[in-house]
Design a protein around this nucleic acid. Structure first.
Lengths: 225, 225
DNA sequence: CAGAACTCTCAGCCAATTCTCAGGAATTCA
DNA sequence: TGAATTCCTGAGAATTGGCTGAGAGTTCTG
C-alpha cells in the first residue's frame, strides 16, 4: 500500500513516515502544497494524508483540484482544531475522512486502513450544513451522526436545497429542478415535501434548517439552523 | 438535479434515462440536435450530457451556440473514439468535460456529479447604498451587516428605489413598477409602504435613506442617508 | 398477488401580508 | 394666520400564502 503524506511540519512528517512504514505502508512525503499536488497527480497512491495548512497551496485547494480532475484517490485530511478551518469544509471539498490534530497514531492507521479497503471508487463529495450531512453517491443522510432515511423525492429536494444553501430558492425553481419539467400537478407539492423533510431533518432535532421565506420560497440555513 | 441527455441512439438514451433517474436525477431526453438545443435554451438544467454525432445539428454546434448566447450550464460531451471527432475540439467549443464511448456508467455519474457540484451560477449583482445592501438573487437585505426581513412588496419597492438611487421617483412610477400596471386601488398605498420600509431600514438605525420630496415623490439616498 | 412504501391531490385552518380608510401632522401659499 | 395640499400612520378588514392531515393513486417488494 503506497501512501502520500503531505505535511510541512518536518518533525511530524518524519514521525509519520517512520510509523507508517513500520505498519507496512510505502510512504512518500511532500513538504509543501505544490509538491503534494504534483506527486498526487503523478502517482497512483492508495491513500493520501493531507494537512490543511500548507505553504503554497492549502489542503482544501489540493483536494478540490484533484477531485475536479477526476482523481478520486482516498484522502484523509488533518484538521487543526483552532476554528479557522473545519471538518465540514474538508468533507465539502471532497475529502473522504478527517482527523483533528492532535490525533492518536493508532487511530490514524485504523482510518487509513479503512480508507484503503474502500478503495478508489469515484466518490463525490458530501454536502454539509452544520451537522447535517448528505452524501449523494452513497445516498445517505445524517444529522448529529444519526442516520436519516429519506425517500428518493425527499433526498433530491434536500440535495438541491443544500447545493444552494444560504440562498432563497423559489418554489418554481425547486419544481423545475427536483420534479420533471413537464410536471403539471399542484405546485403545493413543494410545500408538502418541505413539510415531510422538516419532520425528518428538523423536528426530531429541535432545529430549523429549512426556513420558509414567505412570498419568496425556502432557504436552507448553511449552519444547519 | 435536472439533467438533459441529448442522444439519438434510442437504446442508449433510454438506458441513461433509467440509470440517471435511479441515481436521483430528474432526466429529460432529446433525440436530435435541434430538439436538444431548444430544450437547453428553454430550461435551466443543472447539467447536459451531449452526444457529438446527432441528426440535425451536431454536439459541437449546440455547445458553441449555447455558449455564444451566454448560457454556461455545465456540459459533458460524449465523444466516440473513431478519430473523426475529438476531445480537444469538444473542450474548445466550451464543453466542461468529455467522456469517450464506450464509457462506464459509474464514471459518467461521478463526472456528472463533479460538474453539478462545480456549478455555473454567475454571481448576481448586489444593490448597494452606503451600508444598505440588497441581493435580489438571494433575496436578502442587510444594513450594517444586520439582516432585515422584508415582505415581498417591501422588497420589490426597495429594489426599485435602489435601482434608481439618487433620482427622485414619482409615486405614479412606483405604482406602475412595483404594483400591477392595472392596479386601481388607493395610490396612498405607496405612502403606506414607504412608511413600512422606513420602520425597517431607517428608524432602527437612526438613518434617513428614504427621503420624501414633497410634491414630487421619493428619493433613496445613494449614501444610505 | 398483497402489503408496504412512496407520490401526489385536496380542502380547511391559521397567520402573514396587503390594502383601505380616516384622522392628524407637516408644508405651502395666499 | 388660516386654508389648502400633501404626507404619515394606526386600526382593522380582506386577501393570500403556507402548513397539515386524510386519503387516493402508483410503484416497489417479498
Amino acid at each position: 500500500m503506497r501512501v502520500l503524506v503531505v505535511e510541512d511540519e518536518k518533525r511530524l512528517a518524519a514521525t509519520l513516515k517512520r510509523g507508517l512504514s513500520s505498519e507496512g505502508f510505502a510512504v512518500d512525503v511532500a513538504l509543501d502544497g505544490p509538491q503534494g499536488l504534483w506527486m498526487a497527480r503523478e502517482h497512483p497512491y492508495d491513500a493520501v494524508v493531507l494537512d490543511i495548512m500548507l505553504p503554497g497551496i492549502n489542503g482544501y485547494k489540493i483536494c478540490g483540484t484533484l477531485r475536479e480532475e477526476g482523481n478520486w484517490m482516498p484522502i484523509l485530511m488533518l484538521t487543526a482544531k483552532d476554528g479557522e478551518y473545519d471538518e465540514a469544509e474538508a468533507l465539502d471539498t471532497g475529502a473522504d475522512d478527517f482527523l483533528s490534530k492532535p490525533f492518536s497514531f493508532v487511530v490514524l492507521v485504523a482510518r487509513l486502513r479503512a480508507l484503503v479497503r474502500r478503495g478508489v471508487r469515484p466518490r463525490p463529495s458530501v454536502l454539509v450544513a452544520g451537522d447535517l450531512r448528505l452524501d449523494p453517491a452513497a445516498r445517505s443522510c445524517t444529522r448529529d451522526g444519526v442516520d436519516i432515511a429519506l425517500t428518493p423525492r425527499e433526498f433530491s429536494l434536500l440535495e438541491y436545497l443544500l447545493r444552494r444553501a444560504g440562498e432563497v430558492v423559489r418554489k418554481t425553481e425547486i419544481l423545475e429542478h427536483v420534479w420533471d419539467y413537464d410536471f403539471d400537478g399542484d405546485p403545493n407539492i413543494v410545500e408538502v415535501y418541505a413539510g415531510y423533510l422538516r419532520r425528518k431533518i428538523d423536528v426530531p432535532f429541535g432545529r430549523h434548517a429549512l426556513e420558509t421565506v414567505r412570498g419568496a420560497g425556502y432557504c436552507l440555513n448553511p449552519q444547519g439552523g
